[in-house]
Amino acid sequence: MSDPGIDELVERARSLIADGSRRILGIIGAPGAGKSTVSDALAAALGAQTVIVGMDGFHLDNDELVRLGRRDRKGAPDTFDVDGYVSLLSRLHAAGRTSTSPGVPIYAPRFDRSLESSIGSAVLVRPEVPLIITEGNYLLLEEDGWQDVAAHLDESWYVDVDDDVRRERLIARRLGHGHPRDQAEAWVLGVDEPNARLVDATKHRADRVVTLGPLTPLLTESTHSA
């Protein structure tokens, strides 16, 4: 049995590429909101029509974060290579295949949670792929270089979920990577939560808000006309 919430999201995504042109769909939300869940569901339904290029691939390396004195708050806005991310989004838009250009393939990095590190050139984006899904926390932030991201998004969806559910997901994620519970809870409350409040303040800039309920994601409101 298909999920009507997912079906609606898939149809909206398909409508973005109905004319065959390349589009970039931004999936935004606080840490643990379910951005990857929505992105993966869309990718599974759309198959070869889409590829996911995550913001997390632009995490600064741990050694660099140590050098900068930012390792203890990895995930904050200034712990990413935002200029590199913006440059990639620009290239992805320009490199799509059109009626007058064959386009070119582009490689993007991927963040490996098991390694806590990014892997360069891990994601192949073929020129014939019409929909790029890019997901991350800060796509609608308007400071520190992040303000240049939104110009490269053809549509933005903000994924919203109950805060208690979101925090429990984050704690469970860290427990799954071997962190003791006290350390997991301390990180979520001390590092993830300030970032979550920062991200939540950008929700009004999204084109659409996707509320994740217990079973079904639903498009609950639109802040811009479609």
Score class of each variant (00 low, 15 high):
162 D>W: 14
197 R>K: 01
9 L>R: 12
224 H>R: 06
60 L>P: 07
79 T>H: 08
161 V>R: 02
122 A>R: 07
132 I>D: 00
213 G>M: 08
41 A>T: 06
29 G>S: 12
35 K>E: 04
10 V>Q: 03
185 E>W: 00
45 A>F: 00
124 L>E: 07
52 I>P: 09
198 L>G: 11
151 A>Q: 15
38 V>N: 03
176 G>M: 00
121 S>V: 14
122 A>I: 07
18 A>C: 04
142 E>W: 10
62 N>E: 14
11 E>M: 03
12 R>H: 12
142 E>P: 05
138 Y>S: 08
175 L>G: 02
198 L>A: 09
104 V>D: 00
220 T>S: 11
40 D>L: 09
216 T>I: 15
18 A>I: 09
189 L>K: 14
147 Q>H: 13
175 L>N: 05
63 D>W: 05
143 E>S: 14
225 S>K: 14
87 S>C: 09
168 E>S: 13
55 M>T: 11
141 L>G: 06
153 L>N: 02
201 A>E: 04
108 A>N: 02
200 D>A: 15
99 S>C: 04
11 E>N: 11
153 L>P: 06
203 K>I: 09
152 H>G: 07
123 V>P: 02
36 S>Q: 08
61 D>H: 11
98 T>L: 08
183 Q>W: 10
167 R>P: 01
132 I>Y: 01
